[in-house]
């Protein structure tokens, strides 16, 4: 397993208290695995993704740890993290369209960046150009300013820059969201291409667009209100989801698009709870049609079937009925 995340907590310090945006998540990603990360807006996807690379201003590492290639990743210590960034962990941020300095040519900016990381730009220049061509950009974008490119071109340039030093873990935050459908498909395929060529080992693809995940992801992790709801292989999540939230997420999608948006979901009344003071017990309880008395306690995130983890009392009980799916021993405790 190249990435192991254990009981990770990342909180925002605000004037009104701590926002528990990522509140105890545990998962791992294998070598060469593309893991989709899904969930409604405000569930903590970006916080988790950013947290693995760069904790900015108000973000705080409130607990848990992360291992990368068998070594601890010191995410709470920004100084120590510097050495890991770009080389071991990297990100295509949600704001990729505005991520490039407007007053520097793209090649020049990359050269400045690499120089400050102690990398000789001339040595990677050929490879840089090759990858620029690979993502379908003309080589001369290196001599252009970001505002001379379209949003999609900037996005792809950012993609190449972020992965130039072949990181073990790449976070792609909403890389396809602002693009039109055909470009989305192309960008999705590029992510797979990058993985196949070994430019990146493990990839986390954060998105609202489940249809993209269905195409490119090996596994899908569903988050709800700072907690994990369900994780399984892509086919299992799409065809056989066990968590009511995942089921509703899928049910609310139009047949063709497999896409949900930032607006409140049609199929799921209500909104995710405030993470400033999240409810006790199952955080989905208020919106869950199956909620019962057990749900005032927090459901454990356990493996109900091989490779299929769920945090839901109902799913857990059904798994335990004789003749039902495999029983998870430790969950019964």
């Amino acid at each position: 397993m190249s990435v192991r995340v254990e009981d990770l907590k990342i909180y925002y310090t605000t004037l009104r208290g701590e926002v528990k945006a990522v509140d105890g998540v545990t998962f791992s990603i294998g070598d060469g695995e593309i893991m989709g990360l899904a969930g409604e807006s405000g569930c903590g996807k970006s916080t988790l993704g950013n947290g693995l690379v760069f904790l900015e201003g108000r973000m705080r590492h409130a607990g848990g740890h992360v291992q990368l290639d068998g070594q601890p990743l010191p995410i709470g210590d920004s100084r120590a993290m510097e050495a890991f960034r770009l080389r071991q962990v990297s990100i295509i941020p949600q704001y990729a369209m505005s991520a490039l300095n407007p007053t520097r040519k793209i090649g020049r900016m990359t050269a400045d960046l690499l120089k400050s990381r102690g990398v000789d730009y001339r040595k990677v220049l050929e490879e840089f150009k090759r990858r620029v061509r690979l993502v379908g950009l003309p080589e001369d974008v290196l001599d252009r300013y970001p505002f001379e490119l379209s949003g999609g071109m900037r996005q792809r340039a950012t993609m190449v820059i972020s992965t130039l030093l072949n990181p073990s873990l790449l976070i792609g935050d909403e890389v396809t969201s602002a693009l039109d459908v055909s470009t989305q498909r192309a960008v999705g395929e590029m992510l797979m291409e990058f993985r196949d060529r070994g430019y990146v080992k493990s990839t986390v693809v954060i998105t609202h667009d489940l249809s993209i995940l269905a195409q490119i992801a090996d596994s899908i992790l569903v988050m709800y209100a700072g907690k994990l709801a369900e994780k399984a292989g892509t086919a299992t999540i799409v065809n056989n989801p066990l968590h009511p939230y995942t089921q509703q997420l899928l049910a609310s999608l139009p047949e063709v698009g497999l896409r949900y948006d930032e607006a409140p979901l049609l199929g799921i009344p209500g909104r995710p709870p405030s993470l400033l003071d999240p409810p006790k017990g199952c955080r989905f309880r208020e919106r869950c049609p199956f909620a019962f008395d057990k749900c005032v306690e927090e459901p454990p995130f356990v493996e109900l079937r091989p490779g299929h983890e769920v945090a839901c009392w109902k799913a857990l009980q059904e798994a335990q009925v004789p003749g039902g799916p495999m029983v998870a021993q430790e969950a019964a405790r």
Partner: peptide, 28 residues
């Protein structure tokens, strides 16, 4: 605080580089 500064930091750019860019753009 701009996105490009955040991105540079996320990629481990030195403080010096981030500040240099910020200064250059602020001077305009």
């Amino acid at each position: 605080e701009t996105d490009y500064a955040r991105y540079l930091r996320s990629l481990g750019a030195s403080q010096r580089l981030v500040r240099r860019y910020a200064y250059r753009n602020a001077v305009l």
